[in-house]
Amino acid sequence: MNRWLGRGINFGNALDAWGDGPELPLDERYFDEVAEAGFDTVRLPVRWSAHARAAPPYAIDPAFFRRVDAGVGAALDRGLRVVVNVHHYHELCAAPEAHLPRFLALWRQIAARYAGHSGRLCFELLNEPRGRLTAVRWNAVLAEALAVVRAADPGRTVLIGPAEMNGLGALPALEVPGDGNLIATIHYYAPFEFTHQGAGWVEGAERWLGRTWGGTADETAVRDDLEKVAAWGREQRLPLFLGEFGAFSGADMPSRTRWTAFVRAEAERLGMSWAYWEFGTDFGAFDLESATWREPLRRALLGDREPAAEIRQ
């Protein structure tokens, strides 16, 4: 399954939107753009916690479930793979014990709803565990959530990532359950001062404006980081999915393009599938206003690749 995930893109800031940032309308034409460009996978971040009851049985709003259904269906109908996760559950990270029953109830509903869907649909248990959801606590929560999924859907591919916001430094502390249908996922935004320069939600990010990327030292740092991830994957006999990587629009386009192309190429060299962050908002490879790809970023991700017909079957 990891091989078929291939090259992906996140539909961020759509079903996971929060705060005052830009929002992506989840239009079917965007799935067409992704499929026609030659991507293999769409990752759908979903903020389920904002659309579920606060008290047992923690029922997910049926109207919101239908919105997610539409996104999943649009991807599958176009021959794409799709990754559905639990995104922005910040309350769980702040108070794991208090929110664990609700988190498990969310997965009980999600797994049951999609149990009959195509095997091209994957689940990702939680985006970027952090805060009080330390590595030790997350290992226990992960195992419980996986058991809930397996009760409804024994054969579904499930993605798991480490604590500390899916950072590569936390991989050694990730306890991998004995399960034959797992893929490990990490996120990569290094150097952070480059990829997040000017990002309004990051304190002090305006001081990083003007930082460029390129050259031997920069490339070596990325290569060394991703080779450590690949070595861990080999030790664990676990395939790897680079679930997020991208550079914010505050960076200059030539540097963004160089960084994106290099990270993508290294991930592929090391046998990782990947999903760029993200389609059409503040990291976007696609310009919603002009309804065209930002060609430097598209080429950095796909080159002159034609849609892979054998993957669309």
Score class of each variant (00 low, 15 high):
residue 143 A to K: 03
residue 189 Y to A: 02
residue 129 P to E: 10
residue 122 C to G: 06
residue 152 A to N: 07
residue 16 D to E: 09
residue 288 L to E: 09
residue 224 D to E: 15
residue 197 Q to G: 06
residue 243 G to D: 02
residue 217 A to Q: 09
residue 27 D to F: 05
residue 29 R to E: 12
residue 94 A to C: 12
residue 72 V to M: 11
residue 202 V to W: 07
residue 109 Q to L: 11
residue 161 G to Q: 11
residue 115 A to V: 12
residue 225 D to K: 06
residue 219 E to N: 04
residue 95 A to C: 08
residue 35 A to C: 08
residue 63 A to P: 00
residue 21 G to L: 02
residue 43 R to G: 01
residue 189 Y to S: 02
residue 274 W to L: 15
residue 141 V to S: 07
residue 85 N to Y: 05
residue 81 R to D: 05
residue 74 A to H: 07
residue 43 R to K: 10
residue 247 A to C: 13
residue 222 V to Y: 02
residue 156 R to Q: 06
residue 118 S to M: 05
residue 249 S to N: 07
residue 300 A to G: 06
residue 275 A to N: 01
residue 212 T to V: 13
residue 184 A to W: 01
residue 88 H to K: 06
residue 154 P to Q: 07
residue 17 A to N: 07
residue 307 P to W: 14
residue 137 R to Q: 12
residue 35 A to Q: 07
residue 67 R to G: 05
residue 128 E to L: 00
residue 71 G to W: 08
residue 28 E to S: 10
residue 102 R to A: 10
residue 84 V to Y: 01
residue 191 P to Q: 11
residue 197 Q to I: 10
residue 277 W to R: 01
residue 94 A to S: 14
residue 29 R to I: 11
residue 234 R to W: 04
residue 99 H to Y: 15
residue 266 E to A: 11
residue 2 N to W: 02
residue 97 E to H: 09
residue 138 W to A: 04
residue 22 P to H: 05
residue 11 F to M: 10
residue 253 M to D: 12
residue 186 I to V: 14
residue 281 T to F: 03
residue 5 L to D: 02
residue 136 V to D: 14
residue 12 G to V: 00
residue 292 T to N: 10
residue 163 A to S: 13
residue 118 S to R: 14
residue 107 W to H: 13
residue 289 E to P: 00
residue 32 D to V: 15
residue 115 A to N: 04
residue 230 A to S: 12
residue 145 A to W: 03
residue 193 E to L: 09
residue 235 E to N: 12
residue 135 A to D: 13
residue 189 Y to R: 01
residue 19 G to R: 04
residue 219 E to I: 07
residue 85 N to P: 04
residue 195 T to C: 12
residue 242 L to R: 01
residue 252 D to N: 13
residue 1 M to L: 11
residue 114 Y to D: 11
residue 229 V to K: 03
residue 101 P to G: 09
residue 65 F to L: 13
residue 54 A to N: 05
residue 197 Q to R: 06
residue 253 M to L: 14
residue 178 G to W: 05
residue 239 P to M: 14
residue 213 W to C: 12
residue 143 A to Q: 09
residue 202 V to P: 00
residue 255 S to L: 12
residue 247 A to D: 01
residue 51 H to Q: 06
residue 223 R to E: 13
residue 65 F to V: 14
residue 138 W to S: 03
residue 132 R to A: 15
residue 269 R to Y: 07
residue 28 E to F: 04
residue 111 A to N: 05
residue 201 W to C: 01
residue 141 V to E: 04
residue 201 W to H: 13
residue 89 Y to P: 01
residue 58 Y to V: 08
residue 96 P to V: 12
residue 313 Q to P: 01
residue 27 D to S: 13
residue 116 G to I: 12
residue 191 P to C: 09
residue 37 A to C: 09
residue 163 A to V: 08
residue 282 D to M: 03
residue 96 P to S: 13
residue 228 K to T: 09
residue 114 Y to F: 10
residue 89 Y to R: 03
residue 221 A to F: 08
residue 79 G to F: 15
residue 113 R to L: 14
residue 58 Y to C: 03
residue 103 F to V: 12
